[in-house]
């Protein structure tokens, strides 16, 4: 049997909203350590890796490792029925072909239960090596979302150039071109508003902005986003999920034809 309970069910809903545009269905790997998921988008240029550690749940029980094929599209629809302060319990009974989502209101006066049929999915798994990136930009996730949305107006690609002083996002297309430059924060009251850059080597990489915009669907999970970059290496775009885990998106850079 598998059972995991989250007092703040909305966190789980935000995780699903963060994933579902990039991947519509995925295999959840459940073990005693927690829940992990790795999935690629259909064009194989982007990858998402999710980790939710068992100690981040109020209660967590996993008697044996399970691989659960789940439609994220359907799960998202079910989670929309959840109240914003509801507690969420996810359960898979032994020998069952369904996942049960139970939602309980904070005053314990309302209790809802939904079942979703599990799917048989072919899953591919890519080995992602631990990488020492040349540059890690940390910035407010809302600012990153806004920049990606704005850049998409100008073109299909965004070039991210990072030096020790700042980071510049630029795009050009048929209508024109533009760029936004953020300087490293020197003095901020709130850490979540800061832009900080750890740099070993300056980088300039170009990415499809459409994918960056899909990654930004996970921005509500975290005040800050980490962008880890090295030349000729996929970007790693990371949003923390509280202190229980993270969503990491990987995107292959574009190269000149």
């Amino acid at each position: 049997m598998f059972e995991a309970r989250l007092a703040q069910g909305s966190i789980f809903a935000k995780v699903i909203e963060g994933l579902r545009e990039l991947v519509t269905e995925a295999t959840w790997e459940c073990s005693g350590n927690g829940i992990t998921l790795q999935a690629m988008d259909s064009s194989h240029v982007a990858l998402v890796s999710l980790v939710l550690r068992s100690d981040g749940f109020e209660t967590y029980r996993c008697d044996r490792n399970m691989s659960l094929g789940i439609s994220l599209t359907s799960m998202s629809k079910v989670l929309k029925m959840m109240g914003k302060d509801d507690t969420l319990t996810i359960r898979v009974n032994d020998d069952s072909d369904a996942i049960v989502l139970s939602m309980e209101s904070q005053n314990q006066e309302e209790f809802a239960e939904y079942e979703l049929r599990l799917m048989d999915l072919d899953s591919e798994h890519l080995g992602i090596p631990d990488t020492d990136y040349s540059c890690v930009v940390k910035m407010p996730s809302t600012k990153f979302s806004r920049i990606c949305r704005d850049m998409a107006i100008l073109g299909d690609s965004v070039t991210i150039c990072s030096t020790k002083d700042g980071v510049k996002f630029g795009a050009k297309g048929d209508v024109g071109q533009g760029s936004i430059r953020l300087n490293q924060s020197t003095n901020v009251d709130k850490e979540e508003d800061a832009v900080s850059i750890e740099l070993r080597e300056a980088v300039a990489l170009t990415f499809a902005v459409r994918y960056l915009n899909m990654f930004c669907k996970a921005a509500p999970l975290s005040n800050q986003v980490n962008l880890s970059m090295s030349e000729d290496t996929p970007l790693m775009c990371e949003f923390k999920v509280g202190d229980m885990g993270h969503i990491r998106f990987y995107l292959a850079p574009k190269i000149e034809d």
Binding site: L47, G127, T233, A252, K254, I255, D257
Partner: peptide
């Protein structure tokens, strides 16, 4: 023109 490479170019299947 810019080509979008696939991730398999960088990471191996396990």
């Amino acid at each position: 023109n810019q080509f979008q490479l696939e991730l398999q170019t960088y990471y191996t299947h396990t």
